[in-house]
């Protein structure tokens, strides 16, 4: 039980996927201007990330390793993720057109979101059991959504701030991310 708890704390806070592992920076900077959009993005990524972790683990354990073709890992994993994203896109388009509009270009881009592939590979590298894989990917999904939400909350207020012209947009967003990253460093004493 304690092991699982350590995985959760470490994935959500200490090794936050965006702020200390630098995975999923594109949506983190791109869709974090509005809280509603970032919630949608967080949800979509979490969904894809958790299912992808499950499928890639099963694929690795029961197909790639027994057949001794682990070098095909990258190709196999990215194909799984690409088809999953296609599926999620169709579902969201059908059931929630406003959300589909808000997420816009970033929805197909989940395919090239390094967070999803990154977590799938980390799962295999750490040789987790299926239970740990699920907890690990769930916590990373939560960590991603948390970072995205915090960021969009700050950026909504940043709109009214008086920022030097050349720092507007991405540069100031990166500085904000740096400050968030510094405060997340404070958690590193936890484990």
């Amino acid at each position: 039980m304690q092991e699982y708890f350590i995985i959760i704390i470490s994935a959500v806070l200490v090794n936050n996927i965006v702020l200390s592992q630098f995975l999923g920076i594109c949506p983190f900077l791109g869709v974090s201007k509005k809280i509603s959009a970032s919630l949608g993005m967080g949800g979509a990524v979490s969904f894809v990330l958790i299912i992808a972790s499950f499928i890639t683990w099963v694929l690795q354990t029961y197909l790639l390793t027994p057949l001794n073709i682990t070098y095909l890992q990258t190709i196999a994993f990215i194909l799984v993720i690409a088809s999953l994203v296609q599926f999620v896109e169709m579902v969201i388009k059908k059931f929630s057109p406003p959300m589909y509009k808000a997420l816009g270009i970033f929805l197909p881009l989940i395919t090239t979101n390094c967070a999803v592939l990154g977590v799938a590979i980390i799962n295999i590298q750490n040789e987790y059991s299926l239970g740990k894989v699920m907890v690990h990917s769930l916590s990373h999904a939560a960590g991603f959504t948390l970072a995205l939400l915090l960021m969009s909350g700050i950026r909504e207020r940043l709109e009214d701030a008086d920022i030097p012209e050349s720092m507007r947009g991405t540069p100031i967003a990166l500085i904000v991310a740096a400050l968030m990253s510094i405060s997340f460093l404070g958690f590193s004493g936890l484990t």
Binding site: L174, I175, S181, L185
Partner: peptide, 9 residues
């Protein structure tokens, strides 16, 4: 990690 954000920003 924060240094990366600061430098690029």
């Amino acid at each position: 990690p924060p240094g990366g954000f600061i430098a690029l920003g």
